[in-house]
Design a protein around this nucleic acid. Structure first.
Length: 271
DNA sequence: CCCGATTCCTGTAGGC
DNA sequence: TGCCTACAGGAATCGG
């Protein structure tokens, strides 16, 4: 499931190979993803040069001279560089054919992903404009979590997964960060003190940073831009480990649904 | 504003 | 073995 580390892994995998490349053709095989794929991308992009590949939250931004392609991987998407004549699978929805003989291919079985076009600054696109800070930026810290959580009665886990609070923290890393910070995921966000939020912000930064360094987490089918899986799954302490011993204390890891999402925690280490 | 529920989709896993 | 159902989840959107 692509969360921020997986999207960043994808960006790093494809950027050196596509930056400066000219688009030779655009193939749209599935015109309905999360939203309709914009019409006219072939005319708009053919002959244009990919100037940069950036990331904002879990969105990938392919910058061209006259706008940007915004790509979201949803929960099952991958964006890979393949040979131009690679066989096409049933979930290969979108190809940017590159002049160099490769194609940038979006594969997404569940079609929660998106391909959008922004004619101006993509950061001002309506989906990106109101997003919270990047978790690895200095603008995100424990003080921000503390300030925004005052008066909130909802659980802390959905709170840190709220993209207006901080972007890029998905279900897996939310559980992992709360474990590292020693905070129960069901604790009301507004009842947690400043010092604990400082710990939590630090935990979010370190867990995401480590996951990026490992090439992301491959639970089922995530692959980076070069087609290789990520190796962070073996570093997960609690996610997906219901009933298994906590790596720190040995207590059985618990699982419950919070905000419609499976949550995992150690009942002894997390309070 | 806040918060929980619903929605999109399909592969996979579990139950019988 | 095979069928059926529940579940997984990012995040917008809706309803209270």
């Amino acid at each position: 499931m692509p969360e921020l580390p997986e999207v960043e892994t994808t960006r790093r995998g494809i950027a050196p190979h596509v930056q400066g490349q000219r688009v030779a053709d655009v193939v749209v095989r599935q015109k309905q993803l999360r939203w309709p794929v914009p019409r006219g991308l072939k005319q708009r992009l053919t002959g244009q040069v990919i100037r940069a590949v950036e990331r904002r939250a879990k969105y990938l931004l392919l910058r061209f001279d006259r706008g940007s392609l915004i790509v979201h991987l949803g929960m099952s998407g991958s964006l890979r560089l393949v040979a131009a004549d690679a066989p096409v699978g049933k979930h290969d929805h979108f190809d940017l054919m590159l002049a160099g003989g490769h194609a940038l291919r979006l594969t997404d079985p569940r079609r929660f992903g998106a391909v959008l076009w922004s004619r101006g600054d993509p950061l001002e696109h309506e989906l990106l404009r109101a997003l919270g800070p990047e978790p690895l930026d200095d603008a995100f810290d424990g003080e921000r979590l503390y300030r925004l959580s005052r008066g909130r009665r909802a659980a802390v886990k959905p709170f840190i997964m709220d993209g207006k609070v901080v972007v890029g923290v998905g279900n897996i890393y939310a559980s992992e960060a709360l474990f590292r910070a020693g905070i129960r995921p069901d604790r009301p966000a507004g009842g947690i003190g400043r010092a604990r939020y400082v710990r939590l912000a630090a935990a979010i930064k370190t867990v995401l940073g480590e996951a990026i360094a490992q090439g992301g987490t491959t639970l089922r089918d995530f692959v980076g831009g070069d087609g290789r899986p990520g190796y962070f799954a073996q570093h997960l302490n609690v996610y997906g480990r219901e009933g298994e011993p906590c790596p720190a204390c040995g207590a059985a890891v618990r699982q419950a649904v919070l905000g419609q999402r499976a949550s995992y925690w150690c009942p002894r280490c997390q309070r």
